[in-house]
């Protein structure tokens, strides 16, 4: 029993599990931030009065929502970085981290867009008509009237997208971010197979601890911020 515990302790000393989770949290933070920006712009395009913008937004969503994230990550590293030699930083680790953030952002932006669009659908048409009737053109109407209400209606689906993003941040391994959780877990398993159940449990519990608060927070927020009509 003592051997078992000391073995487990040594394992945690040897591998920086907390650091790995911190990496995924950082990937999630930046990925979510950029995904929110891109996704909001896409949502604006998809509800805009200009047909070509609507088309471009829809095309983006259909392409990126239906492409596996692993393929986007691999594309970024193999095509963009290796072949086109586009570097985002001289330092490899920063470079791959940023590539991974881009991959996460462009992929989840499609889901953010659709979440916001579902939020826009909760806003009655009359709100847009009233905004137009007082002389607001499309962008101010969207910014002042539609989006503030749409975001409140989109909190639950946006929260689900954030949870998916956190879990998908492990795909950053495909962009050579080898110090994140999934890679760390794989390495630990390869060299310490005798503790495999404990290692699985460690990472699974870690993600549960991270995901549950997001779910609780979004439920609370969506109730608190709901627009009363």
């Amino acid at each position: 029993m003592n051997d078992y515990l000391s073995g487990l302790g040594a394992l945690l000393e040897q591998y920086d599990v907390l650091g790995a989770f911190w990496t995924n949290i950082q990937l999630t933070f930046w990925g979510a931030l950029f995904a929110l920006v891109i996704g909001t712009m896409l949502a604006l395009m998809r509800i805009s009065p200009i047909a070509s913008l609507r088309w471009a937004g829809a095309t983006y969503v259909n392409v990126f929502r239906n492409t596996p994230l692993t393929i986007i990550m691999t594309f970024l590293v193999l095509a963009v970085w290796t072949q086109l030699q586009v570097s985002l930083a001289a330092d490899f680790n920063s470079n791959f981290f940023r590539l991974a953030v881009i991959g996460l952002a462009v992929y989840h932006a499609a889901f953010v867009c659709e979440s916001i669009r579902s939020g826009v659908n909760t806003v009655p048409l009359g709100q847009a008509e009233a905004a137009r009737a007082i002389g607001l053109s499309f962008l101010p109407a969207a910014q002042l009237v539609i989006l503030p209400q749409a975001f409140r209606g989109a909190i639950a689906p946006l929260g689900n997208t954030l949870i998916a993003l956190l879990k998908n941040s492990t795909v950053a391994a495909a962009a050579s971010v080898s110090w994140e959780t999934a890679s760390t877990m794989k390495t630990m398993l390869e060299f310490n197979a005798d503790y495999r159940w404990e290692i699985f449990a460690l990472f699974a519990i870690g993600y549960v601890i991270l995901v549950i608060p997001i779910g609780l927070l979004t439920t609370w927020l969506s109730q608190r911020l709901a627009v009363k009509r």
Partner: peptide, 20 residues
């Protein structure tokens, strides 16, 4: 040393051939 990690060696060879 700066490290690139790929899922398979073939991709490492691609990166080596490309000079990255």
């Amino acid at each position: 040393v700066q490290l690139l990690e790929r899922p398979g060696y073939a991709e490492c060879v691609t990166a080596l051939s490309a000079g990255q």
